[in-house]
Simulated scan of single mutants.
Amino acid sequence: MPDSGSEEVAWVEEMSAVGRCTFVKAYVASCDLTQENVEEELQTLVKASRSKLSGIRWILDCVGKFQGGMTATHVATSRHDGIDYLKSANFERGLALLETHNLSFDLQCAPIQLVESAASLFAKYPRLKVCIDHMGKPRRLLGVDLMEDGVINPNIVPDEKELQVWREGMRAMAALPNVYVKLSMMGYAIPGWIRTKERQAVLKSLVRETIDMFGANRCMVAFNWHVNAAVSDGDGASKVGPDAVELLKMFGWFFEGYSKEQTEFLFAGTAKKFYQLK
């Protein structure tokens, strides 16, 4: 959550110049599309990235004020607390510029926003490639990870109301051929999913349902490994999470029965296509 996306990109490029981060092929940079000088900021990002700018990401999940994370609102949205940017004319003005500049948009929002605003908004921009982050962020479908006494929550029946909102939004987005989805942050949907075979099975069904909606050629694996397994996997919703090897093995299990071509799309091909990687 950098204060300046262009400064963050410049910082990474400085490291690359001295032999670090030389593997970076493209940037999905942070940029507030509602700002008045958004066109100038996009040009600054292109320059800072040495023309490796592929897209923009701006965290939008908002179902009201942050309230300490009790809602499905990300702490980053406290910058515009309680305002749904997907309904903002200023945001749409900036979004239109991305289509003009052949830049993609990474969409992180709450499931209800997919239903109420995202699908209708992105339908207006069919040439703008959009990637839904974190499977659309269904929230705690099986409840909390641990009960008050520290015992693992035994529930394996998903919250049907939450699931239906997510399904409605994801199906509406899947109907738009320019929309893709990342398979990531599994622990946000099911905190502590790694603890039991039963929870893993529920998560597997959720991942496969997502792929069924969008197709393997519009889904991509993403690690989201910014801090550690538990935090990165579930946004702090649990104290446990898979390590990198475990997660890769789990994805292999999730994708059992898919063809070699489908699996290659999921692990690499979709991302290469979406982010214009050579």
Rank of each mutant, 00 (worst) to 15 (best):
T77R: 14
M15P: 03
N153G: 13
A175F: 05
G236A: 02
Q200D: 11
D32W: 07
P111R: 02
K25P: 01
R57Y: 07
L45P: 09
H74D: 14
F66S: 06
V240W: 01
C109S: 06
M135V: 09
A216F: 13
L163R: 15
E160I: 15
A229E: 13
H134P: 00
K52E: 07
D145C: 11
A189M: 03
A229W: 14
V227K: 12
V24P: 09
T73I: 02
E261K: 13
S117I: 09
G55K: 03
I83M: 08
L146F: 05
L128V: 01
S232D: 05
L146G: 07
W11E: 10
E160A: 15
L97F: 00
K272S: 08
S104M: 07
K273F: 14
L107C: 04
R79V: 09
I211K: 03
E256F: 15
L42E: 03
E256K: 12
G55M: 02
G69F: 01
Q35E: 11
L33F: 06
L176K: 04
Q262L: 00
L97I: 00
V24I: 12
T210C: 08
L266P: 02
I59A: 05
I59G: 00
V165C: 00
N155E: 06
K47G: 12
P158R: 04
A26H: 04
Q164N: 14
Y258G: 07
V202W: 03
N228Y: 06
R139E: 09
E246H: 08
I83V: 10
E36L: 14
F223A: 15
V130K: 07
P154F: 08
V24A: 10
N224F: 08
R127P: 00
H74M: 11
L33R: 02
M70A: 11
R218F: 04
A119R: 12
P111A: 00
A216N: 06
M135A: 10
G64F: 02
A76F: 15
L42N: 04
D3P: 08
V46T: 11
T71F: 06
C21Y: 13
A72E: 04
L141P: 06
A268L: 14
G187I: 00
R139P: 04
I194Y: 07
V151N: 12
M213P: 12
V130Y: 08
R195M: 01
S88I: 00
T270Y: 07
A119K: 11
H80R: 14
A48I: 07
P2W: 10
A237Q: 11
K278D: 13
V18C: 05
Q67E: 13
L176D: 04
T44P: 10
E13L: 08
L206I: 11
L42R: 05
G150V: 05
E198Q: 15
L203R: 00
F105D: 01
V63Y: 03
L107E: 02
Q35S: 10
